[in-house]
Nucleic acid binder design. Structure first.
Lengths: 182, 182
DNA sequence: AATTTATGTCAGCCATATTGACGTTTCTGC
DNA sequence: GCAGAAACGTCAATATGGCTGACATAAATT
């Protein structure tokens, strides 16, 4: 491996963030970008750890979460939410069905549909994982107070694409809190 | 595939969020949990789209980002930040070196170290991706005002694990804004 | 009756992560 | 100066979770 050596090494003993040299343009939100990265990394880390014990991964969690929260979700809806293909969903969903975390029910309006429901076993897992994440969120919201919490919600809502929302997003944005500052 | 049919189908025409039946315990932060999921999904989606044109994935972006922002980052530091193994980093890093997005420089205090630096080409890519994400963040921050923006930063900071922070996190939490409400 | 929709499935591929083992260079402690 | 540890690179094998393409079936729609 070729070693590229520059004129003067200029070793920084203290690591410091540097605006990349193209700092001439509009200011970039480096702080928020990185905070989001770390916050999300640790946020999902809570669940990841616990999931190992069940032999599941993040994919299983996402499926379980949305099925539990939105009972009767169709397969197609789930695909929209997760933004994956049905083949990808297939493997994960099959495991969750086999291991009795989720059950399917034929739609009665449209018998082609397979509506998805969490079993008590599935709900328990989702609640456990949500508990871990809630602890972290509560701790963080305490720092900003109730008014701050509402600002955080507004911010997160505004970060989400609203064009062509999936069924779940529609439900989320139809919620009372959404009407607040729309 | 066995079809499990229940007593009464009870089809919901409008999808509605349901507290899983174990709602007896402490309240769970379903709203924030889901907002974080969707916000992050769309946030990283901005970059993902652009990366395809370069034949890169998210892994490349993460590496490029931190190397650009923290010039002289050691390989070991990067592993801490990204929470991956050196083998995983290896392939991605090799590509970025080969394609001249990143250069290595032997540490002069410790010649075992390979300090990482972005090339102008690399910086340009990172700035472009950060620009996309900044547009989204700016749009969202407008909704909450300057005071709200500070609340959002406080919230995100508080979401991050502080025990055993890596070098980059230390730098982030050493920043002036961090001192504000510590 | 023909077509479209919702779903499932088979086969293969790719990206990104893992563990374990091993080698080299260089620093550190004795 | 030497032993050992540290920082890195790399080989091999494996797992997960994505992907595309093709095809099948049942049920709804036209």
């Amino acid at each position: 491996m070729a070693d590229i050596n520059f004129s003067s090494p200029t070793l920084s003993p203290e690591l410091r963030a540097a605006e990349p040299s193209a700092a001439a343009g509009e200011p970039l939100r480096w702080d928020i970008i990185e905070l989001l990265f770390f916050a999300y990394r640790d946020f999902v880390g809570d669940a990841d750890h616990e999931l190992e014990a069940f032999g599941f991964g993040r994919a299983h969690h996402r499926v379980m979460h949305f099925v539990t929260r939105y009972p009767g979700l169709k397969v197609a809806d789930l695909l929209d939410v997760l933004r994956i293909t049905k083949q990808s969903l297939g493997r994960v969903l099959k495991q969750l069905l086999d291991e009795d975390y989720i059950v399917q029910k034929t739609g009665n309006n449209d018998r082609r549909q397979r509506l998805l429901f969490a079993t008590p076993k599935g709900e328990a897992l989702v609640a456990k994982l949500a508990g871990l994440q809630t602890a972290r969120i509560d701790r963080a919201l305490e720092q900003v107070g109730p008014a701050g919490a509402e600002k955080v919600r507004q911010f997160l809502r505004a970060m989400i694409d609203r064009d062509d929302p999936d069924k779940v997003l529609e439900a989320i944005f139809r919620t009372p809190a959404a009407a607040a500052k729309e």
